[in-house]
Deep mutational scan, measured.
Amino acid sequence: TETREFDNEEEARKEAERLRRKGQDVQIRKKGNRWELRRT
């Protein structure tokens, strides 16, 4: 599992969408005042 953190939700969602188009399974969750993007 690979995780990346983003400062805002929009960036996290854009990156998640990009990875999903490549066929990756991605989850986003709020972590304090940041957003965590998890690739499984």
Rank of each mutant, 00 (worst) to 15 (best):
T1H: 13
T1F: 14
T1K: 09
T1S: 12
T1D: 12
T1Q: 12
T1G: 12
E2F: 14
E2M: 13
E2V: 12
E2G: 11
E2I: 13
E2D: 11
E2N: 10
T3G: 09
T3I: 13
T3F: 12
T3K: 09
T3W: 15
T3A: 10
T3L: 11
T3D: 08
T3P: 11
R4K: 11
R4T: 12
R4M: 15
R4I: 14
R4W: 15
R4E: 09
R4V: 14
R4P: 05
R4Q: 13
E5W: 15
E5A: 07
E5S: 12
E5D: 08
E5T: 13
E5Y: 15
E5I: 14
F6I: 01
F6S: 00
F6M: 02
F6E: 00
F6P: 01
F6Y: 10
F6C: 03
F6G: 00
F6T: 01
D7Q: 06
D7C: 08
D7K: 05
D7L: 06
D7Y: 07
D7I: 07
D7S: 06
D7W: 06
D7F: 06
D7M: 07
D7G: 05
D7E: 10
D7R: 05
N8H: 05
N8Q: 05
N8V: 05
N8Y: 05
N8I: 05
N8P: 00
N8A: 04
N8F: 07
E9G: 03
E9Q: 06
E9D: 02
E9W: 15
E9K: 06
E9L: 14
E9Y: 15
E9A: 06
E10A: 10
E10R: 07
E10N: 07
E10H: 09
E10F: 11
E10V: 08
E10T: 08
E10M: 10
E10P: 05
E10W: 12
E11N: 04
E11H: 04
E11A: 09
E11P: 01
E11M: 06
E11R: 03
E11L: 05
E11V: 05
E11I: 04
E11T: 05
A12W: 00
A12T: 02
A12E: 00
A12V: 05
A12M: 03
A12H: 00
A12N: 00
A12R: 00
A12G: 02
A12C: 13
A12D: 00
A12P: 01
A12S: 01
R13M: 13
R13G: 04
R13A: 08
R13K: 11
R13S: 07
R13W: 11
R13V: 12
R13T: 10
R13N: 11
R13I: 14
K14F: 10
K14W: 09
K14D: 09
K14S: 11
K14N: 10
K14G: 07
K14I: 11
K14T: 11
E15Q: 05
E15R: 01
E15I: 05
E15F: 06
E15S: 03
E15A: 07
E15P: 00
E15V: 07
E15K: 02
A16G: 06
A16R: 04
A16I: 03
A16M: 12
A16S: 04
E17K: 08
E17Q: 09
E17D: 11
E17P: 00
E17L: 08
E17T: 07
R18G: 05
R18C: 13
R18V: 10
R18I: 12
R18D: 08
R18P: 01
R18T: 09
R18F: 08
R18Q: 08
R18H: 08
L19T: 01
L19F: 05
L19R: 04
L19V: 03
L19A: 05
L19M: 10
L19H: 04
L19P: 00
L19D: 02
L19W: 09
L19N: 02
R20W: 09
R20A: 07
R20L: 07
R20D: 02
R20Q: 08
R20M: 08
R20G: 04
R20E: 04
R20S: 06
R20H: 06
R21D: 09
R21M: 12
R21K: 12
R21L: 12
R21H: 08
R21G: 11
R21Q: 12
R21Y: 06
R21I: 08
R21S: 12
R21P: 01
K22H: 12
K22Q: 14
K22E: 14
K22G: 09
K22W: 10
K22L: 15
K22V: 10
K22T: 12
K22S: 11
K22Y: 10
K22P: 03
G23W: 03
G23A: 01
G23V: 00
G23S: 02
G23N: 03
G23R: 02
G23K: 03
Q24I: 15
Q24E: 13
Q24Y: 15
Q24L: 14
Q24R: 05
Q24F: 15
Q24T: 08
Q24P: 01
Q24C: 13
Q24M: 14
Q24A: 10
Q24V: 15
Q24W: 15
D25P: 09
D25L: 13
D25S: 13
D25H: 13
D25V: 13
D25K: 12
D25F: 13
D25R: 11
V26K: 00
V26H: 03
V26Q: 01
V26G: 01
V26R: 00
V26P: 03
V26D: 00
V26Y: 09
Q27P: 00
Q27G: 05
Q27F: 11
Q27M: 10
Q27L: 10
Q27H: 10
Q27I: 14
Q27T: 13
Q27W: 11
I28R: 01
I28Y: 03
I28V: 13
I28M: 05
I28T: 02
I28P: 02
I28K: 00
I28D: 00
I28Q: 00
I28H: 01
R29T: 14
R29N: 10
R29M: 14
R29K: 10
R29W: 11
R29C: 14
R29Y: 14
R29I: 15
K30S: 04
K30N: 04
K30A: 05
K30Q: 10
K30W: 04
K30I: 05
K30P: 06
K30T: 03
K30Y: 04
K30V: 06
K30R: 11
K31G: 01
K31R: 11
K31F: 06
K31T: 09
K31I: 14
K31L: 11
K31H: 08
K31M: 08
K31E: 06
K31N: 12
G32M: 01
G32K: 04
G32W: 01
G32P: 00
G32Q: 04
G32Y: 01
G32S: 02
G32I: 00
G32A: 03
G32E: 05
G32D: 06
N33Q: 07
N33H: 06
N33L: 06
N33M: 06
N33G: 08
N33W: 03
N33I: 04
N33A: 07
N33E: 11
R34W: 04
R34E: 03
R34G: 09
R34A: 07
R34N: 07
R34D: 03
R34I: 14
R34H: 11
R34M: 12
W35R: 01
W35S: 01
W35V: 01
W35M: 01
W35G: 01
W35Q: 02
W35K: 02
W35E: 02
E36R: 01
E36N: 00
E36I: 13
E36P: 02
E36K: 02
E36F: 08
E36D: 00
E36V: 12
E36Y: 10
E36M: 04
E36G: 01
L37Q: 02
L37M: 04
L37S: 02
L37K: 02
L37V: 15
L37E: 03
L37F: 00
L37A: 02
L37H: 01
R38I: 15
R38V: 15
R38P: 02
R38H: 15
R38E: 13
R38Q: 13
R38T: 15
R38A: 12
R39D: 14
R39Q: 15
R39L: 15
R39G: 13
R39T: 15
R39V: 15
R39M: 15
R39H: 15
T40N: 10
T40M: 12
T40R: 11
T40Y: 10
T40K: 10
T40I: 14
T40Q: 11
T40F: 10
T40A: 11
